[in-house]
């Protein structure tokens, strides 16, 4: 049995009087691709925000750990520390750094794995130069991974939508994570781009051994690539299991097709 890299127990999140997440349990094991699905407004993005430190969950436990390391409870720690521990994410509404180049966007991702400070910057000493060159090389390789190397010196805001989504993945990869959280990575992509994306995600898991948790609405993609699926509706976990189990679950069908259809 592989140990989980992410283990979320009974997490709740309240906004004022509204409960956006209600006792959600979710775990991701090393090397797994797990999907989190559910209708719009179900609380999927809120779940990401809670486990990455952008929101502080009202209650519950979020425990993470690189496989092999001892797991660590990370409720309420700052987002940058979450990333440093090794959980990196993308955003549903793309949040690149628009007036920086594609390469620089990726270089930012390496920030928490590099060290040179003010003195290194000013003196441009050997250590800083070597590190800087390593950052450039590594970032360039990541751009190649997502097939964006020819746009390296293009400003991020000038890239088309689908490429921006891939750039966000490369940027998250640059933080050297063991778990990658993707929030609707295929949104706004055409079928061809979606297939490419699927291959990219599978490649990341297979080549780099990074576990993946993704939110996605494209059912074909989700069903074909996930090891397990969790389904959220109105902040509650209504089903989880393998794609076959979930797709046969009446509760899931009901949530997707609307209420009141008892005979479905």
């Amino acid at each position: 049995m592989v140990s989980p890299v992410l283990n979320v127990q009974d997490i709740c999140m309240d906004f004022g009087g509204i409960r956006a997440l209600d006792e959600v349990n979710l775990d991701v094991k090393a090397g797994e691709i797990v999907a989190l699905i559910g209708p719009n407004g179900a609380g999927k993005t809120t779940f990401f925000n809670c486990i990455t430190g952008i929101y502080k969950p009202t209650s519950g436990d979020v425990v993470v750990g690189r496989s092999g390391d001892s797991p660590r409870r990370i409720n309420g720690i700052k987002p940058n520390l979450v990333t440093e521990i090794g959980m990196a994410r993308t955003f549903q509404n793309i949040r690149l750094f628009p007036s920086m180049t594609a390469l620089e966007n990726v270089m930012i991702g390496t920030h928490c794995r590099t060290k040179s400070g003010i003195w290194g910057a000013i003196s441009h000493n050997r250590k800083a130069r070597v590190e800087e060159q390593e950052i450039i090389e590594r970032s360039y390789h990541l751009l190649e991974l997502v097939h964006l190397e020819e746009y390296a010196n293009e400003l991020a805001c000038n890239l088309p939508y689908g490429k921006q989504r891939r750039l966000e993945i490369a940027r998250a990869m640059a933080t050297d994570p063991f778990l990658l959280l993707l929030d609707e990575p295929a949104a706004g992509m055409n079928p061809h781009e979606t297939i490419e994306l699927k291959e990219l995600v599978l490649g990341i898991r297979d080549v780099y051994g990074i576990s993946i948790l993704l939110i996605e609405h494209d059912m074909k993609m989700v069903m074909s690539m996930s090891d397990r699926i969790f389904v959220l509706d109105y902040g509650r976990l209504i089903s989880h299991g393998t794609p076959q189990e979930v797709s046969g679950d009446p509760a899931v069908i009901k949530a997707y097709l609307g209420e009141g259809d008892d005979d479905v």
């Binding site: 952008i54 940058n80 949040r95 750094f97 920086m100 991702g109 928490c112 794995r113």
Partner: peptide, 12 residues
């Protein structure tokens, strides 16, 4: 450019 994305990239 973007404080939230910046933090999410591991910058203090």
């Amino acid at each position: 450019e973007d404080e939230i994305a910046c933090q999410a990239m591991g910058i203090d």
